[in-house]
Amino acid sequence: MSPGDENDYERDAGRSDGMGGSGQTRTRLPEGEGDPYGGARRPLRASRSLVTVVGVVVLLIAAIAFANRGNGSGTGDGSSGDSTTSSNSATKPGSNATAPSGVKPVTGGTNGIASGFAHTGQGAESAGANYAVALVSADILKPARRGDIVNRVFVPDQVDAFNSKLDKAYDKQFLGKIGLDANGNAGKGLTYVSRTAPVGTKVTQQSGDTATVEVWCTGVFGTAGVGSTSPVTNDWFTMTLKLQWVNDDWKVQSFSQKDGPAPVNTDSKASTADEIAKAVEQYGGFTYAR
């Protein structure tokens, strides 16, 4: 039962009690009904008391029914809830798609990268969301931080390969095009922005110690500041991560990225470069969990 439902019951119960309570001294009748003489008041009071009792009983029955329905939608033995979820999953998300599971999403983390995910599909989704944020962050462009991110995100036998790939992808020439120096830092008075926010996740494949997770993301990217040749813009993309269960945690085996799905752009007024830079500094990121 939602808080709103509970308030409705309390208001209804209050009206029922007021109709037949001992403190009620005036009986109000519809216009044109009732006897103008006092002898008719005694049976009317009895009738209203009966209506009050019936109303209270109906409310109690309704409250019990709602409570039982709430209990039935929980985990329980899973027999009825699971069949309903599986039958609806092909057409639309279940009503509990984003409901809290009671399972702690992670057990730890270092330097903003979560770790210790559950060995479940839900844990794989949480890992995928957090790793997507790390792999498209501003820190991945900094050689001094890149190695640590790769070590924490990828499976051990892929660490060296991805360190080499990312070093080549984010070389001095690439960094220069987006206004960064060889260390991945913006020029004086400028702030490089690369902030990603997962919008949704789904497991497309899971078998034992492997899982494939798609993470639908939006984000802001570019360099904020006066004279920037790469202003901050927004983007929508989907990242696909193939995960493997290694050393009691999900790690990335490989990943790919494609554009969209992207909504229609609004006509919101763009903020100034200074406002964007301050927002990045003042608003911290999140640890994402399914």
Rank of each mutant, 00 (worst) to 15 (best):
I64Y: 03
S87F: 06
T91F: 14
K104Q: 15
P43Q: 02
A46P: 00
S73P: 00
G102H: 03
S101Q: 04
A90E: 06
G76P: 02
A46N: 09
A90G: 15
L50V: 15
T91P: 00
T84F: 07
D82F: 15
S73E: 00
R48N: 04
A62D: 01
T75W: 00
L59P: 01
A97L: 08
T75Q: 05
T85C: 09
D77Q: 00
D77C: 02
N88V: 15
F66V: 03
S83E: 09
V58S: 12
S95I: 10
V56M: 11
V57E: 04
S101C: 06
S83R: 15
A63M: 12
G70A: 14
A63D: 01
S79D: 02
R42I: 04
P100W: 00
S80H: 11
S86F: 11
F66T: 04
T91C: 08
G102N: 08
A99L: 09
S86C: 11
S49H: 11
T75E: 09
T98E: 05
A63F: 12
S89G: 06
R42H: 06
I61L: 15
G94M: 04
S95W: 10
R48W: 06
S95L: 11
R69K: 12
V54D: 06
A97N: 10
N71D: 04
A46S: 12
A63R: 14
V54C: 08
R69P: 03
V51A: 15
T84E: 11
G102I: 07
N68I: 06
S49K: 14
A62R: 15
L59C: 01
V56E: 07
V56N: 09
T98M: 12
V103C: 05
V51C: 11
R69N: 00
